[in-house]
Simulated scan of single mutants.
Amino acid sequence: MKKVSFAEFGGPEVLRLIDAEEPHAGPGRIRIAVRAAGVNPVDWRLREGQVLGAHPVVLPAGVGQDAAGVVDEVGEGVDGVAVGDRVFGEGTATYAEFAVLSAWALMPGGLTFEEAAGYPSVVETALRIIREVGVRPGETLLVGGAAGGVGSAVLQIARDRGIAVIGTASAANQDYLRGLGALATTYGEGWVERVRRLGRVDAALDLAGSGVIRELVELTGDPRRVVSIADLDAPALGVRFSGVAGSVPDALAEAAALITRGRLHIPVEKSYPLAEAAAAHTDSQSGHTRGRRVMIP
Rank of each mutant, 00 (worst) to 15 (best):
T282L: 15
V227D: 03
V100C: 14
S121F: 05
P235N: 11
V87Y: 05
W191F: 15
Q174V: 01
E13P: 02
A117C: 08
G181Y: 02
A96D: 08
G179R: 11
N173E: 09
S152L: 07
A96F: 04
L15R: 02
S5L: 12
L46F: 08
R214A: 15
E8N: 09
G167T: 02
P267E: 10
L101I: 07
V135E: 01
E76Q: 14
A251R: 07
D206V: 00
G64C: 02
R225T: 09
G134I: 11
A146V: 01
E21W: 06
W191Y: 07
G69N: 11
A257M: 12
R261V: 08
R197S: 15
V74Q: 07
G221I: 02
V239D: 10
W44G: 10
G243V: 12
V227S: 01
E132N: 07
D206A: 06
P27S: 09
P120I: 14
E76S: 14
A234E: 08
L219S: 08
E76I: 07
A37K: 08
G149E: 06
V100L: 10
H265Y: 15
E22A: 15
G10I: 01
G84I: 13
V165D: 00
L205W: 09
A255H: 09
G287T: 12
L52Y: 08
D72G: 12
V244A: 10
V244R: 14
V135P: 01
E193T: 13
A230H: 05
